[in-house]
């Protein structure tokens, strides 16, 4: 059975609202009353979700089974949407706040607006697609933790902020636009692709992993040029990204890449690929 929960934000909260209970996988059974009673944290007060959300639940036998949660409105001040979700689909028709999809293990999140900082931080699986821009610390680790995102994919149609993929340990981050400085900082593994302009200090402190960029003007001198080649994984990665609904203009399947290894200070096992023909 397919279940669609369609909710609308009735008023924009004037203080931050933490809504980690709003995730499709835990709403598979809940009726509207139960849903409205879900506790959210508003400043330091616990409030019922019904104070901010109204909507309906539709259930149909057609199509694939699963839960889709649709949130409509300006969720910029709402934090932790879909945090820790393991399955189902979350569609946010508007912008959303910090920590969206943090620690998620599966399912899909689609954001038809801008996303706040720490999008998909510590995620281990699933796919997040952002149609607008994302903030800082996409797929990163929280301070004091040693591993950021470990699996899954974050696909960003717009730009991203600083520290994209900090301490990332696996998975994929794709930014179609530009990103600010320190992408892939202290990265352990995984793949980051930045199709636009990248900020300075790409991959500094990276231990392993792959960062694919268009311009390497800011590569630190502790990265060494190895060769120019056509990596066999590129057509596969490219078609995966296209399957996620993102077409990268100018990045053909036959792209050539300059391969740099680094960072020398941390063992030189990471790689930065500079797209030749883009």
């Amino acid at each position: 059975m397919k279940r669609v929960i369609d909710l609308r934000l009735t008023r924009v909260p004037d203080l931050p609202l933490e809504a980690d209970r709003l995730r499709p996988d835990s709403l598979a059974q809940a009726g509207l009353d139960e849903l409205y009673a879900l506790p959210l944290l508003y400043g330091n007060q616990t409030v019922a979700a019904g104070e901010f959300l109204r909507g309906e639940i539709q259930e149909t036998e057609e199509g694939a089974s699963g839960v889709t949660l649709i949130l409509r409105g300006d969720f910029k001040r709402v934090k932790r949407l879909g945090q820790g979700m393991q399955s189902g689909e979350l569609i946010i028709e508007g912008p959303c706040g910090f920590h969206t999809g943090a620690e998620m293990g599966g399912g899909r999140i689609t954001i038809r607006g801008d996303a706040g900082d720490w999008l998909g931080a510590h995620m281990t699986g699933g796919v997040i697609r952002v149609e607008g821009n994302a903030g800082h610390w996409v797929g990163a680790s929280y301070r004091g933790k040693t591993q950021g995102m470990r699996g899954g994919a974050v696909i960003i149609h717009g730009n991203a902020g600083r520290m994209t993929g900090t301490k990332m340990r696996g998975g994929l981050i794709v930014v179609r636009g530009d990103c600010l400085e320190f992408p892939g900082y202290d990265m352990n593994a995984g793949t980051i692709l930045i199709a636009g302009r990248s900020g300075r200090h790409i991959g500094s402190g990276m231990v392993r992993g792959t960062i694919i960029v268009r311009d390497g003007h800011s590569l630190l001198p502790t990265f060494y040029h190895n060769c120019a080649y056509k990596p066999s994984f590129w057509p596969l990665l490219r078609s995966y990204i296209e399957a996620q609904g993102l077409v990268l203009d100018g990045w053909g399947a036959d792209c050539f890449f300059d391969r740099y290894s680094g960072e020398a200070l941390t063992g030189c096992k990471g790689e930065v690929l500079l797209c030749h023909t883009a």
């Binding site: 500094s204 630190l220 001198p221 502790t222 060494y224 020398a264 200070l265």
Partner: peptide, 11 residues
Amino acid sequence: TVLRALVCELP
């Protein structure tokens, strides 16, 4: 970063 590379005698 460059100073570190120099101290560690990296190329």
